[in-house]
């Protein structure tokens, strides 16, 4: 009886695996390219399903592009060449990491500008609202203080 259960379990796993492989095409990536292949794919957006990389997407276009990236790797293309190839055709939008160029300066440096502006504002604010306690007591106040202290000592 127990043996039967194990068989059932193994059978279920086999079926699940079969479906897993049915949805993915077979691309043979040379072992020496494997790391770069996955790094590149995870940096490129699939335009068909925009919130997926071409590594995750199962759209036909993503499959074609995976094949293309693999082909370029085999032909000895550099990472930059492959990224340029994609951006030249589909636009900078496919790059998950936007290029640093005049058009994207605000995107890259905006947060730092905001930070600096915020810090300046804080400094300005602090300067304006200096706590008055640090200021010297006026003569009038000193006398008052002395008299209070004398009273409490008594």
């Amino acid at each position: 009886m127990k043996h039967h259960r194990v068989c059932q379990f193994i059978f279920a796993i086999c079926i699940a695996l079969a479906f897993q492989f049915a949805s993915a095409e077979i691309i043979t990536v040379a072992p020496e390219h494997e790391k770069r292949y996955h790094e590149l794919l995870s940096e490129l957006r699939c335009l068909v399903c925009q919130n997926q990389t071409i590594e995750e997407s199962n759209s036909e276009l993503a499959i074609d592009l995976r094949l293309e990236v693999n082909k370029m790797l085999m032909q000895g293309a550099t990472d930059q060449e492959i990224i340029d190839f994609m951006a030249d055709r589909y636009g900078d939008f496919v790059l998950y990491k936007p290029l640093v160029q005049p058009k994207t300066y605000l995107l890259w440096f905006g947060p730092f500008i905001f930070l600096v502006v915020a810090l300046l504002l804080v400094l300005l604010f602090l300067k304006k609202h200096k706590p008055s306690s640090s200021a010297q007591l006026s003569d009038d106040e000193k006398q008052k203080l002395d008299s209070i202290l004398k009273q409490t000592k008594k």
Binding site: L47, V48, E60, L61, D64, L65, E68, R89, Y90, G91
Partner: peptide, 13 residues
């Protein structure tokens, strides 16, 4: 047929 030229034209849909 292979969709290779369409890639050069930046076709995605």
């Amino acid at each position: 047929q292979l969709g290779r030229v369409a890639i050069d034209w930046g076709v995605y849909g």
